[in-house]
């Protein structure tokens, strides 16, 4: 009993301290957002701001040009949530196809999918841009959102690997019960790969949230800019930069991602222990 207590204490002590070490840079970032712009680098060694100021938040929240910062957050939210829904659902469907059905050419399609992961983005960027230009999709979110609805290779592969850890007896039992493939997928597989889907949702959310290249290329009007793009506009290497506002809004833009993470990580906690093996 007592040794269990000590173990418990040691565990929390270790994990807690370790987490704080890992978090030091993040804490530095947050603290910097309360320092005056011209002191952020001069007092970089000191963690506690002196003086504490809130004006960075006020200033940053006003936004850039004619756009208040909330516009950028709203834009990011639209792009990111639609992309995430599309990416997770379509990838699960495709992953099931790869993991649990057999068809001619499966190897070929799987290989093609893996290959798309290996080509550096820089070289497909120009033809892709021309393609979206031909579709008339420039200066909109379509080039960023729509492709997500057709399966994201990273997530497909992730879910394939997860589905393959699920015992096949479940499928057989379900098939004998007269379950079609689609119902097998929805009734049995989806609940079982919920942790993987939650993982994919978290990734998708923050990848899209921090994605800079898509918005840089496809969104021209500042009223449609996303957070990642807006943050860079506080800075200019040649003249004075608004570092304070940049740090402050970086902190603000972390909040939605943290909330999403906190919500979805529960799915991973629960995982198989509650949803599992009901089928």
């Amino acid at each position: 009993m007592n040794s269990k207590r000590i173990k418990w204490l040691l565990y929390h002590l270790f994990v807690g301290c370790f987490a704080i070490v890992m978090l030091y840079p993040v804490i530095w970032l947050v603290m910097s957002s309360f320092k005056p712009s011209n002191l952020i680098f001069v007092t970089a060694g000191k963690l506690i701001p002196d003086p504490w100021i809130w004006t960075n938040y006020v200033d940053g929240w006003k936004g850039i040009g004619n756009q208040p910062f909330i516009t950028f957050i709203r834009n990011s939210f639209i792009v990111v949530s639609l992309s995430t829904i599309g990416a997770v659902l379509s990838s699960a469907l495709v992953a099931f196809g790869f993991a649990r059905t057999n068809f001619v050419g499966k190897g070929l399609w799987f290989t093609l999918m893996m290959l798309t992961l290996m080509l550096p983005f820089e070289v497909v960027l120009i033809p892709q841009y021309i393609l979206f230009s031909e579709l008339g999709w420039l200066n909109s979110y379509l080039p960023i959102i729509v492709p997500q609805f057709f399966g994201v290779p990273f997530f497909i592969f992730l879910m394939v690997q997860f589905i393959r850890t699920i015992p096949g007896e479940l499928d057989e039992a379900a098939t004998i019960d007269g379950c079609g493939k689609l119902r097998l997928f929805i009734r049995i597989i989806v609940p079982l790969i919920a942790p993987a889907m939650a993982t994919a949702a978290i990734f998708s959310f923050y990848w899209r949230w921090e994605d800079l290249l898509g918005p840089v290329l496809y969104v021209n009007s500042p009223s449609k800019y996303t957070v990642s793009l807006a943050l860079k506009m506080f800075l200019d290497s040649e003249t004075i930069s608004n570092w304070g506002a940049m740090f402050a809004m970086s902190v603000v833009s972390l909040v939605p991602v943290i909330i999403v993470f906190f919500m979805f990580q529960r799915q991973i906690v629960e995982g198989i222990s509650t949803t599992g093996l009901k089928g």
């Binding site: 987490a19 890992m22 978090l23 923050y206 990642s228 940049m246 993470f261 990580q265």
Partner: peptide, 19 residues
């Protein structure tokens, strides 16, 4: 949940200018 979020935070701030 808190620990996980703490360990995951560095990855969330990802490739931004601030990092």
């Amino acid at each position: 949940g808190v620990y996980r979020t703490m360990f995951y935070l560095p990855s969330i701030i990802g490739g931004s200018v601030a990092v």
